[in-house]
């Protein structure tokens, strides 16, 4: 109903201010590793109750075949080697613990990795889908992050799409690119994919009244980009550091777990 024109300068000034303030609101911690215990993971889970029931159901159905295949693989793994039961549990717990780790972010404050990049390299995407869902369940019930009705959607973004992209990159680049680059791209792009899919999920559920799905996707993508893009880069860097450390100190364990190139 009413419109106002502002000068260009003021616009950019406002935008810069918003980014700065947004940055500060988002990362209010210092690089203190202990703030991790009890602080909020800042990656994108759709919270409980946010998705309309049709969409919530839809994403559960999308996730279902991955769960079925993943569960079948896990059952077979454990049947063949009973020791895998503990190992998978430890891997899942490790993924969860990693998400509670505080890492310095490239923008200067700190954030938390999703941990699925490393897990995918070790276990493959289907098993990771199941483990991720359990991690998400833990996060919903032990950290009040994410949700139960949105478990399907969050699994598709964080447990399926992310790991699938990561796995594809890992398989594709593994012996063709320098190790550190492969690991970085696997983790960073897996993380980025998670955020992109979440933006798609939100855009599908809440299309823009003017621009429809596309405009909505751009909107949600932009709004969350401030936190997610630096986080992806941070996670990429962290995973490289971790993998390097593991290769030098734990190559035996990695080999036992079947990581090629160890």
């Amino acid at each position: 109903m009413f419109t106002r024109r502002l000068s260009r300068r003021v616009c950019w000034g406002v935008l810069a201010l918003l980014l700065l303030v947004g940055h500060r609101i988002v990362w209010a911690h210092s690089t203190d590793p202990f703030a991790a215990q009890g602080s909020a993971p800042r990656y994108m889970h759709i919270m409980e109750g946010f998705l309309p029931p049709i969409w919530a159901l839809f994403w559960f159905i999308v996730a279902l075949p991955f769960w079925v295949i993943g569960l079948r693989q896990i059952t077979k793994l454990i049947a063949d080697q009973p020791e895998m039961r503990l190992l998978l549990g430890v891997a899942g717990a490790f993924t969860f613990a990693l998400s509670a780790l505080k890492i310095p972010s490239v923008t200067g404050s700190s954030s938390h990795p999703t941990g699925t990049g490393l897990g995918t390299i070790l276990f493959g995407p289907f098993v990771m889908a199941v483990l991720s869902s359990i991690v998400l369940l833990f996060q919903a019930l032990l950290l009040a992050h994410g949700g139960l009705t949105t478990l399907g959607a969050n699994t598709v973004s964080m447990g399926i799409a992310g790991p699938l992209v990561g796995w594809a990159i890992w398989k594709g680049l593994h012996h063709r690119a320098p190790f550190w680059l492969t690991v970085f791209l696997t983790a960073a792009l897996a993380n980025l994919m998670t955020y992109v899919v979440t933006a798609i999920q939100l855009a599908l559920a809440f299309p823009d009244p003017i621009g429809g799905f596309v405009a909505s996707f751009v909107k949600f993508g932009t709004v969350f980009a401030v936190t997610q893009i630096p986080l992806s880069i941070s996670e990429g860097i962290l995973t490289v550091i971790i993998m390097n450390a593991l290769m030098s100190t734990a190559s035996h364990e990695l080999r036992t777990l079947g990581v090629q190139g160890a």
């Binding site: 590793p33 020791e83 549990g89 430890v90 717990a93 490790f94 550091i241 593991l246 364990e253």
Partner: peptide, 19 residues
């Protein structure tokens, strides 16, 4: 950065050995 990486990898080995 270095400490976080070492922490995570140490945790990995710890987790594996525990199992």
């Amino acid at each position: 950065w270095r400490s976080s990486g070492l922490l995570a990898s140490r945790l990995f080995v710890d987790a594996y050995q525990r199992s």
